[in-house]
Nucleic acid binder design. Structure first.
Lengths: 323, 323
DNA sequence: CTGAAAGCGCTAACAA
DNA sequence: TTGTTAGCGCTTTCAG
């Protein structure tokens, strides 16, 4: 910056002003400075400007998801990036992979980098109590749990109940449930929805939890379908589990009805086409980012909770009758 | 930091040493400092330490892809993150969306943040000539084009030719080609592979390019299938295009063979199961990150180009005969 | 083993 | 409209 100032025959302050959208700099001077900048290939040092700035704002937000490789979170990340871009922010990301230590490390790294905001799928809500100083936080997919934090949630309980009822209405009474770890809030919500809908017919024998990927879901489904009194329908509580369930049904449960949570690419081209409860990751991400930037723009109203729906998309796999 | 030092009754320098993996600090002193750190909830300011450090290393790398929402890039991002984590680095990301201006802005933002390294799917190779100072760069999916930069590529030409030959071997001679923008290197490579395999039988009437999403690909495929002399097989040059092709074939091209570039989730459960040329995004990402960190660790050998294969996965849609 | 002083590149506050 | 001075929070250097 010193070099640029010398080259343009001005003081560093003038250069700084030009870089930061010059107000009160004579156009001719500004032009000279800009010329020197390009000629010398000068690049602002963001770390230094952040350091001295009043609010220490880094113009960076962080996105903490369970796993960026999951298409659901990837779509969410795309939406967040788009919103951030509109505000001139850059985005850091990290995948906690449902590992509390890893989550802690990522949050520590993000705060060390002095991100202005944080959009997170929290695992360890307790930990967050300490992380809430000086940074705006919006939770996604898990509730604030008493913390003064905005949250964007999907009504998985209602949606799951809706999906299970859909199966009941098509004559099924033995409906298997395939779910993720019970430690995950969304997983508990969806299981609760399943119980709501099953009512008296609820049978713990038909419930399999702790399924973290398609392979383990497939195995659990195969076991369920191979049992003495197999279910005539399966409810799969997320996208990965749905993939496993579809494979299992194809392998050894011909005719078994399936309803999955989360939409899947080409779900309409499977046979039978897959009936799902579709969440909208783009809407979730956009909403979360908007809440975050509202906070960064000074909104200090009490923390809000936005509840988004998941919609039943009827395609075929959930409408076959038992037998 | 001052506060921590006072609280522990030591100088700031000692605190700094403790934070940076204390060498030469008495254990008892270190313990006292650590206690003060947790008690005061102190968090290192990364911007400040970066500023004063010898190499100005920020311990951040950036990942610039076409679109993070695309599962292919999402998987790649996951692999890059994993590798970065092993080295204690955090990852910034951005999607250029095949927009040169946007790419330029993102690179400017990344360099302003003084990232130590950059993994990028470059659009505007020229622009990169200027961006190469002080930051290690690895290209993915597009060649270095004379620039002194490592690149991780997939041999799309050979793979595409292999896929098209597969169709030829199953009796097809009129094979439609559905591709992305001709401005994209991988798209040109794949088209070239198609031409290689078609040889004399190449017919420009059967080629559709510039397809940027599943919808436009579907439309192009429908047109092709509805023409006077429709193709009996389609070669779809990426995942999004394959999705469109599958839809079009289902809608109005029953029996048309399909080979797609890129694997798709549950491709094996489509009817017919989808034959594809599968790239491995995780391997691509891991390889790129390893190259980058090798550079950051001081490797200054001449720039390398790693060529990865795409493998033909035979499942059914590419083996139906014309009829 | 520990601390004091200097200064990284920039912007806030003021002075000219 | 422009320049000068101070100092952001940390690490380097060097002295104890």
């Amino acid at each position: 910056m010193r070099d640029v100032a010398d080259a343009a025959g001005v003081g560093v302050m003038t250069v700084s002003r030009v870089i930061n959208g010059a107000v009160g700099v004579r156009p001719s001077t500004a032009e000279r400075v800009r010329e020197a900048i390009t000629r010398l290939g000068y690049q602002l040092n963001h770390a230094a400007s952040t350091l001295r700035r009043r609010n220490h704002g880094s113009m960076v937000i962080a996105l903490l998801v369970d796993d960026i490789a999951n298409p659901f979170y990837a779509a969410l990340a795309g939406a967040v990036e788009e919103e951030a871009r509109g505000h001139g922010f850059t985005v850091l990301f990290g995948s906690a992979k449902e590992d509390r230590l890893r989550e802690r490390e990522l949050v520590a790294a993000f705060t060390a980098h002095r991100v202005d905001g944080l959009i997170a799928v929290p695992t360890d809500t307790e930990m967050w109590r300490d992380a809430l100083t000086g940074v705006a936080v919006v939770f996604v997919d898990r509730p604030a749990n008493g913390l003064p934090v905005d949250a964007v949630l999907v009504d998985g309980r209602t949606a799951a109940a809706r999906g299970v009822r859909h199966l009941l209405e098509h004559g099924h009474s033995r409906i298997g449930y395939l779910g993720d770890l019970a430690s995950i809030w969304t997983a508990r919500q969806r299981l609760q929805g399943y119980r709501d809908a099953m009512g008296e017919a609820f049978d713990p024998e038909l419930v399999r939890q702790g399924l973290r990927d398609a392979a383990s879901a497939e195995q659990a489904a195969v076991e369920l379908l191979g049992s003495a009194r197999p279910p005539t329908a399966l409810f799969a509580a997320n996208d990965l589990i749905t993939i496993g369930a579809v494979r299992a049904v194809a392998a050894c449960g011909e005719g078994t009805a399936v309803v999955g949570f989360d939409d899947i690419v080409l779900a309409d081209r499977l046979s039978p086409p897959l009936t799902v409860l579709a969440q909208d990751p783009v809407e979730i991400g956009t909403t979360a980012a908007r809440l975050l930037f509202a906070r960064l723009d000074g909104d200090d109203s009490p923390s809000r909770e936005v509840l988004l729906p998941a919609t039943l998309v009827v395609r075929g796999s959930g409408e076959s009758r038992p037998g």
